[in-house]
């Protein structure tokens, strides 16, 4: 079964220079393993590939049931240099909520 990420997690994003970071936090701790399996750096890079260069680094926070993604080359120069509406990457986290997540039969129920 496929569900949007928004069913499993919430997000917040912001800038670090020309990189954007997206914190992904499981609504329920028991879904952390599922996020860890599905949200690979490759999938994140593929999802944003029309607007970022990459690479994508992933950091794990099992203590918070959360992941942190650092996406490099994401903001058209970043900060005051960028010409983009979202020069600070504030909306990247919201965009990611639409990502399809495959939930397997033996995963914890939604």
């Amino acid at each position: 079964m496929k569900v949007p990420l928004s069913r499993l997690a919430h997000t917040r994003s912001g800038d670090k220079g020309d990189a954007v970071n997206i914190g992904v936090i499981a609504w329920r701790d028991e879904h952390y393993a599922l996020l860890l399996r599905e949200l690979t750096p490759e999938r994140i890079l593929d999802f944003f590939r029309d607007r970022v260069r990459g690479p994508v680094e992933r950091y794990e926070l099992p203590n918070l049931a959360a992941l942190n993604f650092l996406i490099h080359g994401a903001l058209g120069g970043g900060g005051t240099v960028s010409l983009r509406t979202d020069a600070q990457g504030k909306t990247f986290g919201a965009a990611l909520l639409a990502l399809d997540i495959e939930v397997a039969p033996d995963d914890p129920p939604l």
């Binding site: 919430h10 917040r12 912001g14 800038d15 670090k16 990189a19 970071n21 914190g23 936090i25 609504w27 680094e57 950091y59 926070l61 918070l64 959360a66 942190n68 650092l70």
Partner: peptide
């Protein structure tokens, strides 16, 4: 806990 976690992860790189 969710609002605090959101802010903990705001504008950070390596959380360790």
């Amino acid at each position: 806990a969710h609002t605090v976690k959101e802010q903990l992860l705001y504008e950070i790189g390596d959380p360790s």
